[in-house]
Structures are given as structure tokens and as C-alpha cells.
Simulated scan of single mutants.
Amino acid sequence: MEAAIDRIMLTYDLLLNRTAAASDEARAKVTEYLRTLVEAGETDTHRLAVCGLTYLRQLDGSTDHVKAGYTGL
């Protein structure tokens, strides 16, 4: 699980320029989320990394196309 978390945070930090405190908060949230997935039976590190990154992007709103500026025009 730690390998997946490190991979998630490395990728997420490349996507967004955030403070150390924001990065620590994101790490704590994704750790809890991945713990839930692992307890549910997920063991694939790559799948955990993708799910964790998707989770963080949903939290910060970067997967919302309207917030991202895509209007469809």
C-alpha cells in the first residue's frame, strides 16, 4: 500500500502546485481511502494507485469539466 501511496503523491504533486500542508492533508485522505480498498480485498498496486489518484482529483474538483473550463463549445 505504501508503494501505491508514494506513486499517487508523486503524480499528484506533479499535477498541482500545493503547499506542504496541503500535500500532507491529501496524503492522509488518500491513505484512509486506500486502506478501505485494501480491506475490501484490492491488492493490485497499480489499480490502487489509479483509484487513489482519481479519488484525490475528485476531491479537488479537477475532474469536474465545468470547473476545469470545458464548456463544450
Rank of each mutant, 00 (worst) to 15 (best):
A40L: 08
E42Y: 01
Y33L: 00
V50W: 00
L16P: 02
R27P: 01
L59F: 08
R47L: 09
E42S: 06
T43D: 05
S62I: 09
L48K: 09
E42R: 03
T31G: 10
D60N: 15
E39D: 13
H65T: 10
A21F: 00
R27Q: 09
L37G: 06
D44H: 03
V50G: 03
L53R: 01
V30C: 03
Y33Q: 04
Y55V: 04
A49E: 14
K67R: 15
T45F: 02
A28D: 06
T31Y: 11
Y33N: 02
A26R: 04
A26H: 03
D24L: 02
C51E: 10
E42I: 10
D24F: 02
H65F: 10
L15F: 10
V66Y: 15
L56A: 13
H65Q: 09
E32P: 00
D64N: 15
Y55A: 07
D44E: 12
L59R: 12
T36F: 04
D44R: 04
C51Q: 08
A40Q: 15
A49R: 15
V66N: 15
A28S: 03
L48E: 06
R18E: 13
L16G: 02
T43R: 07
A21Y: 01
T19N: 06
T63M: 13
G61I: 12
Q58C: 11
L16I: 06
Y55P: 00
A21P: 00
G52W: 02
T43N: 05
T31R: 08
T31S: 15
G41S: 08
D64Q: 14
V50T: 11
R57F: 11
K67P: 06
K29G: 00
S23N: 08
V30M: 03
L59I: 14
K29A: 11
S23R: 09
L34R: 08
L16Q: 10
R57G: 10
T54R: 15
T63A: 09
G41I: 07
A40C: 05
T31H: 10
A26Q: 05
R27T: 07
L56Q: 13
R47I: 06
K67N: 13
S62F: 06
R57K: 15
A49Q: 14
G52M: 04
A22W: 02
D60M: 10
K67Y: 15
V66M: 14
L56H: 10
C51F: 03
T45N: 10
R35L: 10
D60I: 12
L14M: 07
L48R: 08
A26F: 06
L53W: 01
E39K: 11
S23A: 09
D60S: 10
Y55Q: 05
T43V: 07
R18M: 12
K29L: 08
R27S: 03
E39I: 07
R18A: 04
R18V: 09
A40R: 09
T36P: 03
A20Q: 08
V50N: 06
L37S: 05
A20V: 08
